[in-house]
């Protein structure tokens, strides 16, 4: 189990996460739902251990082990990974090498082709580069294929539907189902309630706190009715008043 306990984080003197608690069980599918600017991607960066996102208080546990002070690499070696919302380009690196980490992971060409197929890319992409010749949507798909290749225990998908040519929800769901076949825990971060519907458990966050958590249909309905109309997603006091 991956667990966030009382995580608080300030960035630039501004509170972003406030005593946040979340649990993610093995093999299940979760969504973290919320409007833009509510702290969703910050949660992702905190879980992954991105530099600058070390919580001022609180702990992160993986199967009972405190991983709060581990680096990104160390967390990845324990089986946590992320497909970042913004996918950077890499000059001169072929997709085949990107997906096999330059030979670090021992997978066959057929494995690479399979991963590409799952995200809707043809075999010809093997020889292409992870550079600006790819569209935003293609790059996003390559990133998901890369995640599939490394067989993670826990994967965070930060806004997988964002991109220049948007991936269809069906493609994302198909990809997530493939991960679940490997018993991977999938944590999808999104602001689209339709994506949040197809999961086991949902967290709705606002202003850095968990506003609601529970059954996906209920959370999505609440989000649709309340958060869409909310004009103050970042004003902590308003939300706290409502919760308390």
């Amino acid at each position: 189990m991956l667990e966030l306990r009382n995580i608080s984080l300030e960035l630039g003197g501004k509170p972003i996460l406030k005593k946040l608690n979340m649990k993610f069980e093995v093999g299940k599918r979760y969504t973290i739902l919320g409007n833009n600017g509510t702290g969703k991607s910050t949660v992702a960066n905190v879980i992954m251990g991105v530099e600058g996102y070390k919580p001022q208080s609180g702990k992160i546990y993986l199967d009972g082990q405190d991983i709060t002070n581990l680096s990104i690499s160390q967390r990845a070696q324990l089986g946590i990974t992320i497909a970042f919302q913004e996918n950077v380009r890499f000059e001169g690196i072929k997709i085949y090498d990107y997906l096999t980490l330059g030979g670090k992971i021992k997978k066959s060409l057929d494995d690479v082709k399979k991963a590409l197929k799952i995200v809707g890319l043809g075999e010809d992409y093997v020889k292409r580069h992870v550079d600006s010749s790819l569209s935003g949507g293609e790059r996003k798909r390559v990133e998901l294929a890369s995640v599939y290749m490394i067989d993670p225990k826990y994967v965070i998908l930060d806004e997988p539907d964002s991109g220049i040519d948007m991936m269809s929800i069906d493609t994302i769901n198909m990809f997530i189902n493939q991960l679940r076949e490997k018993n991977t825990t999938v944590i999808t971060i999104t602001h689209r309630e339709e994506i949040a519907l197809d999961c086991d458990y949902s967290y709705l966050i606002c202003s850095g706190i968990v506003l609601k958590a529970g059954k996906p249909a209920e959370i999505s309905e609440y989000y649709k009715s309340m958060c869409d109309a909310c004009e103050h997603p970042n004003e902590i006091q308003l939300i706290r008043d409502e919760v308390i």
Partner: peptide, 8 residues
């Protein structure tokens, strides 16, 4: 970060 998140 992207490559380190893949265990490099």
């Amino acid at each position: 970060d992207t490559m380190m998140a893949k265990s490099m």
